[in-house]
């Protein structure tokens, strides 16, 4: 039984712009246990998006080690990291969340159908079930462009869950939604977290959103300033 989903040790990230170097992350140590819902908080420019990208295997750290389900990730090629992202991680972004030329159901099924080569019946059924769970079964054949902002985020949440991930990373998932819709989305995430025992790491600067989480990690100036259990 593995209770640690992701472990980060001594993560440093430096960006270079000509001769100028900017160290955004200055040595992050972090453990994400199974089934927890964690808020990653910090002011704009504190490094939380960069950390989220590194933990989501979208960006390589300058130094430090990442371990996903006891598997060290250092030096793995892009194809393997893509496979890990596809099988073990789910993503919900603030913008550009869906593929506009595809229906809600196709968007949900995409991460499972593309690697398999075709849209299998079991993937289609699971996509329908997930859309039903996020309350959008009646919108399954709608193109993404015909959905409202809240509906798009709910489709993105369903898509993040299609491959039953161990960790869902959400970057400001309610950033461009109104209060009422934000609460609906967060209640949905909480419900999924409780039912599926998937770990959620949610980047937010909104206290109301953080209040839905079990734990809070405060990041300041590239370092973890505070970690509280909720």
């Amino acid at each position: 039984m593995n209770d640690i989903v992701l472990k980060a040790e001594g993560i440093i990230k430096t960006f270079r712009n000509g001769d100028e170097e900017t160290r955004v992350l200055k040595g992050i140590d972090l453990v994400l246990p199974k089934g927890r819902m964690i808020a990653l908080q910090g002011a704009s420019g504190s490094g939380k998006s960069t950390l989220l990208n590194i933990l989501g295997l979208l960006m390589q750290p300058t130094s430090g080690e990442l371990t996903l389900l006891n598997q060290p990730l250092a030096g793995l090629p892009d194809a393997v990291l893509s496979r890990y992202r596809n099988r073990h991680l789910g993503f919900v972004f603030q913008y550009h969340n869906l593929l506009p030329d595809f229906t809600a159901l196709e968007n949900v099924a995409f991460p499972a159908a593309a690697p398999a080569g075709r849209l299998k019946r079991d993937v289609k059924e699971r996509s329908q079930m997930l859309l039903d769970r996020v309350g959008l079964s009646d919108r399954k054949n709608f193109l993404a462009t015909r959905l409202s902002g809240g509906q798009k985020q709910r489709v993105a949440i369903a898509r993040a869950l299609i491959n039953s991930p161990n960790l869902v990373l959400a970057d400001e998932p309610t950033g461009n939604l109104d209060r009422k819709t934000s609460d609906q989305v967060m209640m949905l995430l909480k419900e999924i977290n409780r039912d599926d025992q998937a770990t959620f790491l949610i980047s937010t600067h909104d206290e109301n959103i953080a209040a839905y989480c079990d734990e809070r990690i405060q990041i300041e100036d590239g370092l973890i300033a505070k970690a509280d259990s909720g």
Partner: peptide
């Protein structure tokens, strides 16, 4: 580009 970025983020391979 943005759509391709989403695909890559959810683990779709460069080959695909």
């Amino acid at each position: 580009r943005a759509e391709i970025g989403i695909m890559r983020a959810v683990g779709i391979s460069r080959r695909f």
